[in-house]
Amino acid sequence: MTEIAVGPTGKLMRRDVVKALLENRDGMLAIGGLGAPAWDITAAGDSPLNLPLWGGMGGAAVMGLGLALAQPERKVCVITGDGEMLMGVGSLATVAVQRPRNLSIVVLDNEHYGETGMQETHTKHGVDLVMMAKGAGIADSRLVRTAEELLKLRADIHAGNGPLFAQVKIDEGTQPLVLPPREASILQARMREAIMGPEAHLQ
C-alpha cells in the first residue's frame, strides 16, 4: 500500500492521496477534474479507466453521475479540485437527489486555483464544502485530514455505499506535470472500450 506523506504544511500530499485511492482499483472508473487532479490521476498510472478532463470546469461531478447511472455495477470516483467543485456546486444537489450508490466525489482541496497563479479559493476563507454537500443531501460527506481518515475513505469508496462526498485537505505545493493524452476523442473511446469492449465503437 502507498505510503501517504504529508507536506511542509502538515497536510497530505496530493499525489499520494490519489495513488492510494486508485491502487488495486478493481475496475473502478475515475474522472479527474480540470487541472491538477487530471495530472494526479495520470501520475497514479494512466489507464483507459481514467478520464482526465482538459476542460468542462464545473462539470466533473455530473459527468460522474451520468457514468454511474449508466454503469450501476461499476464504482465511479470523481477526483477534482476545490475550484472546479465550487464552480459546479449546485451539482451536489443533482447528485444527491439521484442517490447513486456507486458514485464517490473526492475534492482535493488545496484552497487555491493552482493552474492560474495560486489565487485563493473560497475554501481558504472558511467555505465548507462538506457542509454544502451535506446540505445538498449527500449524507456521507466528510472531511479528510489524516492518512488514517484517507484509508477509511478508500475502504468506503470501494465498498460502494454511496453517494459519498469527501473534502481532502492537501498540501498546496504544485507537483511536476504528468500530462495525459490531449486528444479527447481517444480518452472517451478508450474508456468506452474498457467498459463495453470493441462493440462500444459500433453503438
Binding site: 455530473v62 451520468g66 457514468l67
Partner: peptide, 26 residues
C-alpha cells in the same frame, strides 16, 4: 428512463458525456 432534474442546464451537457462514457444515450 432515468430522468435527471438539473440545477442548471450546463450540468446536462456533462451528464450526456458521462452517460455516453457508460454506453447510454441521453
Amino acid at each position: 428512463m432515468k430522468v435527471v432534474s438539473l440545477t442548471t442546464e450546463e450540468e446536462g451537457v456533462a451528464l450526456a458525456f458521462g452517460a455516453w462514457l457508460g454506453g447510454e444515450k441521453s
